[in-house]
Amino acid sequence: MDFIMDNGEEVLIAAPLATVGLPSSLMFYEHGGLWEDFFTALGCRVISSGPTTREILDLGVSLCSNEACLPVKVFTGHAAKLAKETDFLFIPRYASMEKHEMTCPKFCGLPDMVRLSLQTEVKLLEITVDYGKSPQKTDESLRAVSRQLGIDEQTVREAFSRTVRGRLGADTGAGLIAPGIENRRSVAVLGHPYMIYDELMSMGLIAKLTRNRYQVLTPDSLTRAERREHENLFRGRNFYEVGSDILGSAFAFLELPQVEGLVYLSPFACGIDSLVTEFIERRMQREKRHIPFLKVTIDEHTGEAGFDTRLEAFLDMLEDPLRARM
């Protein structure tokens, strides 16, 4: 039990039911706040693993198989850091956010991969999100969470509806006409949110571009409707949600005259990126306006010195007066 002061008097309050750990990686860059609100509403104490550090990365690399992609290794490192500090680790199982679309396969099996990699008895809380094919799986997983936490099932369902269900697929993009997008020299940074916004994996790219006085645009600068509208220019069907977002963003940015270059941050061994970058490059080859395109593949061995050298060469191309006349 804990005490708080209310009008000068001590009031007894109940201790948190359980401590739940949220690894600060992968989809938590988009939905971490929602899940924190959910477990807080249930009376749990929520802690996160904080920013990615070299120690977290090295820990994840040591625990995962060589075939795992870099983001999964980083996520596993975050999970391992939290495992001994919490009663439960929360790892959602994302399958699909919309009909006719799928998330990356690693999201579908993430709880199983982490459980296998840690090789210890770790208590996981899972909630399945499969709005495209099996929305009933969400209710089934909420029932399991209710049993694990010892909370009434109706209370869990109400908390989920209030804090997560209506916000999970919400469109939070700013939009091309938003006041935050200025008509000045810009560089578009493409990639998964957990690559763009992770300071270690992105090598601080956004800050470096900003210091060079460029406005930085990301897929989050666009609304989902804008991303999908431009993605439809692709002659085919992209079944992966994140692939559609990146592809549509790239095509939209190519139409903005203030965008002078594109940078694509890709984790090593990402199958989706290998296809998306190919389509972006083909589209750029057909454009009348030629702008520099830098693709950087990041793995656990990537050094910041080499990254900075490539970035400096890219920025030199943006300043080339001959290119401006092309």
Rank of each mutant, 00 (worst) to 15 (best):
S25A: 13
C64F: 13
P23S: 07
F39P: 03
L59V: 15
T86N: 02
T40R: 09
E98W: 08
T103K: 01
L63A: 13
P105G: 12
L26K: 05
W35S: 01
N66I: 15
K81Q: 12
S25R: 04
T40K: 06
R93K: 15
S48M: 09
A80S: 11
L63T: 03
T53G: 09
S48Q: 07
C104F: 03
D58I: 02
F28H: 10
K99F: 14
N66M: 15
T76L: 04
P51L: 10
V61E: 09
C44K: 07
H100N: 14
F107S: 00
A95D: 11
I56R: 05
L22Y: 05
K106W: 01
P105T: 10
A68H: 15
F38D: 03
T86D: 03
D37Y: 02
T52W: 03
E98R: 14
I47F: 12
L42G: 07
P92L: 03
G32W: 02
A79H: 00
D58S: 15
T40Y: 04
I91C: 03
K73A: 11
R93T: 09
E101R: 12
T40H: 08
F75Q: 02
D87L: 04
T86S: 10
F90H: 09
L63R: 13
R93Q: 12
F38I: 05
K81G: 07
E85S: 13
G77H: 00
P105C: 12
S65D: 15
H78G: 06
A79D: 02
V74G: 05
S62M: 08
L59Y: 10
S49P: 01
H31E: 09
K106S: 02
A83M: 05
T53E: 10
G50D: 06
E55H: 06
S25T: 10
A79Q: 00
T53S: 13
L82W: 02
M97N: 07
L70K: 04
T40E: 06
I91W: 00
V61Y: 05
E30S: 10
V72I: 15
L42A: 05
E101V: 11
P105Y: 05
K84N: 13
K84A: 14
D87W: 07
L110G: 05
S25H: 05
K99M: 14
E85F: 10
A68M: 14
